[in-house]
Design a protein around this nucleic acid. Sequence first.
RNA 1: GCUUCCUUAGCUCAGUUGGUUAGAGCAUCUGACUGUUAAUCAGAGGGUCCAAGGUUCAAGUCCUUGAGGAAGCGCCA
Length: 482
Amino acid sequence: MYNRTEIKDVLAGGHLDKEITVCGWVRAFRSNRFIALFDGSDFNTLQVVIDDDFGNEDVLKKIHFHACVKATGKLVESQGAGQKYELIANDIEVLGEANPDEYGLQPKAMTMEYLREKAHFRMRTSTFSAVFRIRHAIAYGIHKFYNDRGYYYMHSPIITGSDAEGAGEMFQVTTLNMGDMPKNEEGGVDYSKDFFAKHTNLTVSGQLQAEIGALALGKVYTFGPTFRAENSNTSRHLSEFWMIEPEVAFNDIYDNMDLAEEFCKYLINYVLDNYADDVAFLDQRIEKMERNMPKEKRRPMGLLDTLKFVVENDFERITYTQAINILRNSKPFKKGKFEFEPTWGSDMQAEHERFLVEKKFKKPVIVRDYPQSFKAFYMRENDADESVPGTTVAAMDVLFPGIGELIGGSQREERIDVLKRRVEAMGIDEEELWWYLELRKFGGAPHAGFGLGFERMVQFITGIQNIRDVIPFPRTPGSAHF
RNA sequence: GCUUCCUUAGCUCAGUUGGUUAGAGCAUCUGACUGUUAAUCAGAGGGUCCAAGGUUCAAGUCCUUGAGGAAGCGCCA
């Protein structure tokens, strides 16, 4: 419409001494003359210098923080330090004013909590624009990773008729009148009158359907939104989040771990290779933020160094049984520093996982072969092992520093008799899972997969503390604004 | 769901043992300056101290309840 040149292209060179038009928003306006302009295409801003002959005071008065501006002029080599090029503008038009008395944002440090209330504007800040460019990069990297390796992207349903996905509380989907629900003979809600003629929910996982894909297309992955109605109030949980779930026929738990590690490293490398400016900015931002903090509160390594370290080193791989032994022989346990005692048969607490990842190994850790007692029904039962106190399953968790469980996965139980026994033992209605059981009855195969929390990966790569700040519009208990 | 903490100017925050007229920086506005990079200098305006109730001669400060927010735990990705 304006025949504009994007700032990313301007900064890439090739427009020197040419007349161009740029459009964007004002990040800074100095000396009534210098505009730092961004248009989202690049982390860096373009300096627009208002030509000495430009005499329109009315226009200059409208140039405020985050006002939208169109500028035309000649691109020259910059006279000042700090940037290579600048645009000497002889024509400036304010496309959208931003009255600073009413606009909520300012060219200064604002807290993440404040910006969360301004979610419709926060993407304009340096921090959030960097975060959301990186979020895009990771999403793209996910598709590229799997496509390059011959996986098929599969869409699992968002509305599910299954009550047995086994991953937490669900949000109900209904078109029934909440004030006047039709009743069945037992006095409960008659869901045969509902839109789908049955009880339906938003999905908590696409895994069970992904298994259908794996046993037909071989290698598939899902990447979609999932919904959990858990009353979780932490900086690592969302009620609506995105999950990547690869599912692979003929993979066992070890193949699964290899895939998980390769996948994580690929995504980090993809961002480092393609969005270095954004990562560098976030790295410096954290450094500045932590400069005034006491040493024990600072992160042991900068963001950039952490990412490089994860990419360059093998993940530690241990069994749950080994993990418990390490914890019981650890200094914190012997000195009574743990709030919870690590015992075989109970799930590891956050403090235990943090000790393994951040103190003992100081890198990502994959824990496998968990006790069957607290794991899902579909995880493959391991053969009995005399050196292990009880029955275990071929489950794995990938634990990352700072964010805990990034990935949870397993080899799936392909033996129908074992699976039926597990379904019954956990009190799940077999009828609910008829199709899942038939997958084993007809043409079944060993297979494995995992779920990676997309926002947790974005959190790790951007170094952002609260998961609510790596998704454009966070949904958490008691909060669904915008 | 549980525990702890926070809420003072547009924003980020001080505010001592309960004591006179609640302060600073940034932002805004006015003026000066004009190659700036967190520009600089001078001046001005800007307050329901989250809400309600209570204690007290006196409450931003102490107590109770509520609202909103955060951190940690549990659940998980």
